[in-house]
Design a protein around this nucleic acid. Structure first.
Lengths: 214, 214, 214, 214
DNA sequence: TATGAATGAGCTTTCATTCAT
DNA sequence: AATGAATGAAAGCTCATTCAT
């Protein structure tokens, strides 16, 4: 019973922590790190300022935790998408689809994510920066492996190093997703995907038929 | 003589202004807008704080001026690169080359430029933001026109809308340039250019030979 | 008990606020608005600068609050003095007495009050200025009503419009009070009151005896 | 010739000084000491800031000089008014008239003058303050002498000490002048003068006829 | 001699963080 | 354990004053 109570309390604590992280995400992505005060976060999340500092030792820590949490989810999903027994084209199609879904559901997060994965972020924490980059790097490497095995079994043509193919694809996807986010009416997602297929896959696929399945 | 003196003073003033802008660029791109104080800029540039305020009416104005100056140079050069009487492939080759040169000479600036041209920046000035984006947009449109005319006269294959081709190319270039900036040894520029050619141009060119000329 | 605690805290808060207002009054009236810094007020009142800003949202707000508080007390007391069922002469005697008492107790305040009620103050807040003037105006009008009814029932002689009589009396009182404040030994209050009686009341009273009662 | 040139130069200098003082009066009385910058004064007077400092060693000195100059003029005129061989009533009539004229011509100055002659001024310079007060004091004493001699030769009734009569009259005049300045339409000057006569002179004059001559 | 560019002390205000309750 | 009042370092900015030209 003591244990159960303990765990109930702990669950409660985790829930509160999550609430703070969610509020932080919302405010930080809306206004940027320096334009959000700890008081504002505490107030919006309906906690006392002191409580905020029980969960996160300072503003940086809160920001760091929030970004890492977001990156975690991002990476977990993308890794999932390109794992499993399916063939390479299917994996890549799923990669595109999942990346699109994440973008759709979390426009907020994207700003943060890209701010951090690009060399753009001037954010305090070299360490956080590195951690996120490393993770993104690993994602890219996973994707590269797909291309590698795809090339090995004759699915793709070796038009470039697998790593570069992964880089190219990842960025092409992002480009069109950004376009779509900024103006969804003028640039619907399917159009972006079509373009990627037309430019990228027509070139690297040995047989063009499979592209349609995406 | 009076006139000469006048212009000497004015030149001196411009030089000082430029020095301040350079210092500001350096600090802002290293640490981010909110982590640089006006005193820090003044001190680093070896001016009194009051002098800083003679040149720029406030911090925002300084930042704005600095970013716009950078964007100006960026855009002027890129626009130059894709103007003139040459054929489309040559223009695009020059575009790639010039973009690479700019990246090479001004790593600092790039962070800022991308921070602003993407939807990432939560920076105060919607107006500045818009101005830069508009300019970048125009650059893309110029590039799109190249593709359009290239398609019209049978140089390129109409694999996608010219605007999307421009988006794709611009982003592919940036991707590999970033790669190179982060780790020039592992990812030399020529390799990036090769990849772009292999993926992008092999696909859209009607005749493959010209790619070599880049 | 909860309630009591609440009210204790609130009382404490009000006490602190009052302390700040008192310090502000002291410094502002000694040195003038622009010659007192927020840090100086905070230090003298033994609060941290941040605490000062918890109570007043900026310097102007602090000044405004302080002046209005003073004016409030001033006006409340003077209005009280000339209200009630007594005859006109008694009211006016009380007006003189109360005005004297206020001057006695609050030399500081007077400087501020006069700075504001005269056309002298170039103080930022037209609104505050107006509010205080309006209030002073109302006080004068009340006094004028006394003269009016005093004239109606034959107590005073209609030597001038009631409003002008009020103006004249109010200023005569102030004149002698200032004299006394500047040098109480040479110009004791009773002498001033005697002079007002001799000049003003001898002239407007229908029967001279009542003057003695003041 | 050298001398003449010298004096021409000196006259020129004086003219410039006067121009600066005039500009200073205008700005200071409009906006208050702390809301006017030395640059603003220099610019409005069309002098270089350095030149301003050639004439006045600092802001305080400029302000001081300007106020004293104004007070000088004020006092000179009022002293003139109550000097000469005329009888007391005529002198006092002239005093009222001249004070009115000064008010009329120089609303600006009045604010400053009163700000300084009352205990109101929190202005830096105790010395200036004292000088002006002393001067004002002397003016009052001159007026008191009039009353004294007027009493001596039976012109006025000794209803109060001459000094207090002077104080009372001076303040009554100011009161109605202020009233008139604030709202000339509702409170024309003649009405104020009538009231002073009715209240003050009816009481202290031995023979009422002369009042009309004012 | 007149100029005005340059200076930097000092102002108001914000906000991350602490700690007594 | 949770609270939020209190703290004070540090920011952006102004302006009186100086001094090289």
């Amino acid at each position: 019973m003591q244990k159960e109570k303990q765990s109930r309390r702990e669950r409660e604590k985790l829930r509160q922590r999550q609430e703070l992280l969610d509020t932080a995400l919302q405010l930080f992505s809306q206004k940027g790190y320096h334009n959000v005060s700890m008081h504002e976060i505490a107030e919006k999340a309906e906690f006392a300022i002191g409580t905020l500092y029980k969960f996160f030792k300072n503003k940086e820590d809160l920001y760091r935790s929030m970004v890492l949490e977001q990156a975690d989810e991002f990476d977990v999903k993308l890794t999932e998408a390109i794992s499993g027994p399916d063939n390479e084209m299917e994996k890549i199609c799923r990669f595109i689809r999942v990346k699109g879904e994440i973008f759709t559901r979390r426009k907020q997060m994207i700003q943060l994510y890209f701010a951090e994965t690009r060399g753009i972020s001037q954010n305090m924490l070299a360490s956080m920066d590195n951690e996120i980059r490393t993770r993104h790097q690993r994602g890219i490497e996973k994707l590269a492996e797909i291309f590698e095995s795809g090339i090995e079994n004759g699915f793709f043509r070796p038009v470039a190093a697998p790593f570069y193919l992964a880089i190219a694809l990842d960025n092409l996807i992002s480009s069109f997703l950004f376009l779509w986010i900024e103006d969804p009416e003028s640039h619907p997602l399917p159009q972006g995907i079509e373009t990627i297929k037309a430019i990228f896959f027509k070139q690297i696929l040995n047989s063009g038929e499979d592209v349609e399945s995406c």
